[in-house]
Simulated scan of single mutants.
Amino acid sequence: MDHLSQANAHLKYFSEQMVPMIGYCKPEILRLTDESVEIKIPLVTATKNHLNSMYFGALAVGADTAGGFLAIAKAEQLGKKISLAFKAVKAEFLARPEDDVVFVCHDGKLIDQMLAKTVATGERVNQAVRITVLCPTLHGEKPMAEFELTLSVKVME
């Protein structure tokens, strides 16, 4: 099984067992590197609003998944279990995404620093991560929304 297939299997298991709302939106990891993740949520009946664009709740699920999955994957690479939560959310909605949506987080290095600090100190570390929402089939690289989520991580003993 290749790296992306493993990551998607892990995401599917997590969403089925831990956070079913994520699974309801059917996310798929398109790309996963040390520095970034790209996750797609399809625009289907379950994720649409009354305007036939991506529902706000589905956008929040995608942003959560992109920021959270990158942290979980990195902690697993370190062989550490972490407690992960989001403490704050800021969002700016710029345009209606009327097709499948891709959530991009490029904060892998920042998450590495956060994990190193919590492993060294045992303390909870909070830092904002950014997620850009794209609708590539209709708008290319033009952002549809920008999220800033305060990621909170603590190594578990």
Rank of each mutant, 00 (worst) to 15 (best):
V125A: 00
K90Q: 12
P97I: 00
F93T: 01
G62N: 07
L70S: 07
G122Q: 07
V119A: 11
A71K: 07
V155N: 10
I131M: 10
V125D: 03
V129F: 13
G79F: 12
A145V: 00
M54Q: 05
V133K: 08
V89R: 14
G140D: 14
A91C: 13
S152F: 01
Q127P: 11
G79E: 03
I39W: 03
P143H: 09
T137S: 12
V101N: 13
R124W: 00
L134C: 14
A71Y: 09
T45M: 03
K80I: 14
K40T: 03
G140W: 01
G62K: 05
T132Q: 03
I29Y: 06
L151K: 11
G57N: 12
V119L: 03
L32W: 09
F56D: 07
V155W: 08
L78P: 06
A75S: 14
A58R: 02
L94D: 04
F69D: 09
P136K: 02
C135N: 15
C135R: 02
F56Y: 11
D107P: 14
E76D: 10
T132H: 06
V125Q: 09
P143T: 00
K142D: 11
Q127Y: 13
V153F: 02
R96D: 11
A116G: 03
L151N: 10
A60F: 08
D34E: 15
F56M: 06
G122E: 07
P143N: 07
V102R: 09
D34T: 09
E146H: 04
T121I: 01
V153K: 00
E123R: 12
S36D: 12
L110N: 04
H139N: 15
K80S: 10
R130S: 08
V129S: 10
E123F: 02
D112N: 13
L149H: 02
G68D: 00
L134F: 10
V102F: 08
A120M: 06
K48T: 15
R31C: 11
F69L: 10
F69M: 15
G68H: 02
K90I: 07
D64G: 10
G68M: 05
A46D: 15
I41E: 01
R96A: 15
L94F: 08
R31L: 13
E98F: 00
E92G: 06
Q127M: 03
K87V: 03
I29T: 06
Q113S: 15
K87A: 15
C105T: 01
G67H: 06
E38H: 09
R96P: 14
L59N: 07
L94A: 13
A145K: 05
A75G: 11
A116T: 04
R130N: 01
A116K: 12
H139S: 13
T118N: 02
V155E: 15
A95G: 11
R124F: 00
A63N: 01
A66K: 05
E141K: 11
A75M: 10
E92H: 05
V101S: 09
H106F: 05
N52H: 11
K87H: 06
K40C: 13
R124D: 08
V133G: 14
M114H: 08
L59R: 01
N52F: 12
T118R: 06
A60Y: 11
Y55T: 02
A116I: 05
I111S: 10
A73G: 04
F93D: 01
L110Q: 12
G67W: 01
F56V: 07
E92R: 07
A75K: 12
L94N: 03
L115N: 12
L151Y: 00
E146T: 07
M114G: 09
A128I: 01
L43H: 00
S152R: 04
T137G: 14
